[in-house]
Design a protein around this nucleic acid. Structure first.
Lengths: 167, 167
DNA sequence: TTTAACTTTCATTTATTATTGAAATTACAA
DNA sequence: TTGTAATTTCAATAATAAATGAAAGTTAAA
């Protein structure tokens, strides 16, 4: 396979993966592009490589910055902004995990907490509801703290976790 | 909060969470509904509770069955089918993890493998590409096997994993 | 300051994904 | 075997999400 082909395939695949994880295609593609670029890229560069509009590029670059997984870079004497991806993959994964926990898991926990606290009525339905939502709360809560624990190692956390699990 | 309110809030929240994870709203809602129902529900019941069409119900029930997280039940002397959710939450999480690994992680690994194997050209760009995609392959591969290890405990895997990680 | 390069915003358009509903199919009680 | 209740399929439609592009907003060099 040629480099250009491979690069394209990688960007497309990463984009498709994004959509399956609730991240929009362009955002994932920009991220993919920046990851494999040895140099920082400008918005123009990105628009050119991915054939996307200025507005699209601008909005998704911002979103990536909000996630903390790409950064702006300034070149001396140049007005335009350049972008680079977080280069450490463990750090990348940590940031994604943290952000998803904050945006999705934590709010869900709040709701589970709330709905599982309804008052006991006599009905079987309400009883089952309380039981199940409380169980879910327990589970999600533990999963979230497990994720925190794992990613708290900061470096090579996957390897370290596997080591611990093998013992 | 009233039971009916709480139930509705739970179903809506679960549905919204689904969309953030690439699962469609109705599928997540049906699953939520079945989880908190003490009795098996028929397609009619589900259509009525969620205000959705027959076709929608049928397609999403099928998808849930494909994921292995809900089951059909037959009542003797009755023609219609009833549905129940996997009642064990650890088991539910294991099945979801397994399915997502199969559908998303494994295919991604194949692509990463493929694109990181392009032949060395002299260019910096190609070199960075190879390095990064190989690194990603390593990482995703390890994350996937970590997930496998964790969920292989079958029962109360979250608790067990946390225990191991605390040592 | 002005000016122009560059970026952001957002109403509109386009693309994607989900849902409907009726016809076709299936399957089972009589 | 029917006859029919129940389910599935899928083309058409609706709902949602993403992308465009031009105008407004910023910023810094001249």
């Amino acid at each position: 396979m040629e480099f250009d082909q491979a690069k394209n395939k990688f960007i497309q695949t990463w984009g498709a993966l994004g959509t399956q994880w609730g991240i929009n295609k362009t955002m994932a593609q920009i991220h993919a592009l920046l990851m494999v670029s040895p140099e920082a890229l400008s918005m123009e560069d990105i628009m050119g490589e991915l054939y996307i509009s200025r507005g699209n590029a601008s909005m998704n670059l911002r979103a990536l910055i909000d996630w903390g997984i790409i950064f702006k870079e300034y070149k001396t004497g140049e007005r335009r902004e350049y972008f680079v991806a977080e280069s450490n993959i463990d750090e990348l994964a940590r940031k994604i995990a943290k952000e998803r926990s904050k945006r999705e898991i934590k709010p869900t926990l709040r709701v589970l907490q709330e709905v599982s606290s309804i008052e006991e009525t006599g009905s079987t339905e309400a009883a089952q509801f309380k039981t199940k939502t409380a169980e879910l709360y327990e589970f999600v809560s533990r999963a979230d703290s497990m994720l925190e624990k794992i990613t708290d190692y900061k470096e090579s956390w996957i390897t370290k976790t596997i080591m611990k699990l093998m013992k």
